[in-house]
Amino acid sequence: MGVRIETEESTVNAYLDGEIDHHCAPGIRSEIDMAVDAGSPEMLVLDFGEVTFMDSSGIGLVMGRYQVMKNIGGRVCLRNTPKHIKKVMHLAGLDKFANIL
């Protein structure tokens, strides 16, 4: 479980992988926030392509990053979201806050 970060121009791409739960969410959160602090991007892309499991701890992670980006006038995009993770996101109403692709 973890995250790989790539920053390009005004976008921070965070490629998440493995399982996202309450145990590993804080580590992922701090890595993303460090990249956002360093780059002040207009867009944060959270890529879920390699995520095999996510519970509501991941919802807290996404909503927290949404708030961080909102504070600097930026946006959040959720990309490559597997079907079962989309189900958790829709239940939480995340589609109201961010684009889920």
């Binding site: 969410a25 959160r29 509501s56 919802i59 807290g60 992670l61 909503m63 239940l91 939480a92």
Partner: peptide, 8 residues
Amino acid sequence: ERAGLGFA
């Protein structure tokens, strides 16, 4: 950052 969605 607990979402409060566990029971939901």
